[in-house]
């Protein structure tokens, strides 16, 4: 259990560091923070407007004072109000967050469900036509930028074949079928980049574990080839696959920004791009913080899973 407690402690420390860095970003940029915030679209803001903003955001107070206030604010769940419409940022994030999570989860699940069996197949039939084909497809998939996949899918499936709508969103409670149709294309375009990652890792680790001495021992016990494979090869290769998934979560979260933009998916990331375009700094700050929390939590989940899968990790 010690391992799990320690891992949670590390996650907490990381969250603290992330929150601090996000706070500091504004002050690390050269120039007066209030002026930086107002200088958007090449317009020169008036002195009075800058002063007003400085006071309203508390930028005139000492830095440590601002920092403590910031920490108190975010721990109570208040992320401030938008520059644009003065709406509560937290409320908007809560509304959109589940949609982004849904996208990530469905893409990750699809990638594992497709990537692992394909990797196992390729490893067992190594050197065969199927191995060659799957490996080439994986190389291609890894070379497709996520927004290119998305845009080309729209070009082919929506514009040319007119099979599915180019983008949008339908609430699951209102129209479950439509919801899944809208979800499919963005989830697939994320998976196109993620499946090869899972595939390659599965294939490599299966090939590696097949040569291990414990596999010989398992065969020498008289286990069926199927048991040897499932219990002593595939089971062991789960750990590296989980690890590589964990390493790609950052890319995955970055990918959702582009995918949500391409498919007009009203998630968190779409809101982020809009906020950046409008230079709505409080909103950007809030969303980045939430996505980072998500990132840290998923990473922790991956490590905990890793600990569950491998007793040696727990012992450390």
């Amino acid at each position: 259990m010690n391992y799990f407690v320690r891992r949670a402690g590390t996650a907490l420390a990381t969250l603290f560091a992330v929150a601090t860095l996000i706070f500091l970003t504004l002050h690390l940029v050269p120039g007066d923070p209030a002026e930086v915030l107002m200088t958007s679209g090449g317009m020169a803001p008036s002195r009075e407007a800058i002063d007003a903003l400085r006071i309203s955001l508390g930028l005139d107070r000492p830095l440590w004072d601002q920092y403590l206030a910031y920490l108190a604010r975010i721990t109570s769940g208040d992320l401030g109000t938008s520059f644009q419409d003065h709406a509560s940022i937290s409320a908007e994030i809560i509304r959109r967050l589940p949609r982004t999570v849904e996208l990530i989860v469905s893409a990750a699940v699809a990638s594992v469900l497709i990537g692992m069996p394909a990797g196992i197949l390729a490893a067992l039939r190594r050197g065969s036509f199927w191995d060659g084909l799957l490996s080439s497809l994986a190389s291609l998939g890894l070379s497709l930028p996520i927004f290119v996949t998305g845009t080309l899918m729209i070009l082919v499936f929506s514009q040319t074949l007119r099979l599915v709508p180019a983008g949008g969103y339908a609430d699951f409670t209102e129209d479950p079928l439509k919801h899944v149709v809208y979800l499919a294309m963005p989830a697939i375009s994320i998976s196109v980049g993620l499946i090869p990652v899972v595939f390659r890792m599965t294939r490599t680790s299966i090939l590696e574990f097949l040569e291990r001495e414990w596999v010989r021992t398992a065969r020498a016990k008289g286990l069926t080839e199927r048991s040897v494979l499932l219990r002593h090869v595939v089971r062991n290769s789960l750990s590296p696959v989980i690890t590589v998934l964990g390493l790609h979560i950052g890319t995955l979260l970055g990918g959702t920004v582009l995918v949500e933009y391409v498919f007009n998916w009203p998630g968190l990331s779409g809101m982020l791009v809009q906020a950046v375009e409008q230079r709505d700094y409080p909103a950007v700050q809030g969303i980045v913080l939430v996505i980072c929390i998500l990132f840290v939590l998923i990473n922790m989940g991956v490590d905990l899973l890793y600990g569950l899968l491998d007793p040696r990790v727990r012992a450390r």
């Binding site: 990381t14 560091a17 992330v18 860095l21 996000i22 970003t25 504004l26 940029v29 930086v36 979560i249 950052g250 890319t251 979260l253 970055g254 990918g255 920004v257 582009l258 982020l272 791009v273 906020a275 950046v276 230079r279 700094y281 950007v284 700050q285 980045v288 996505i291 980072c292 990132f295 840290v296």
Partner: peptide, 17 residues
């Protein structure tokens, strides 16, 4: 600390400023 940000987000945060 850099690694605890998804790269795309750190980029967006900077561009916003």
């Amino acid at each position: 600390i850099i690694l605890s940000f998804p790269p795309m987000l750190l980029a967006l945060l900077t561009v916003a400023l």
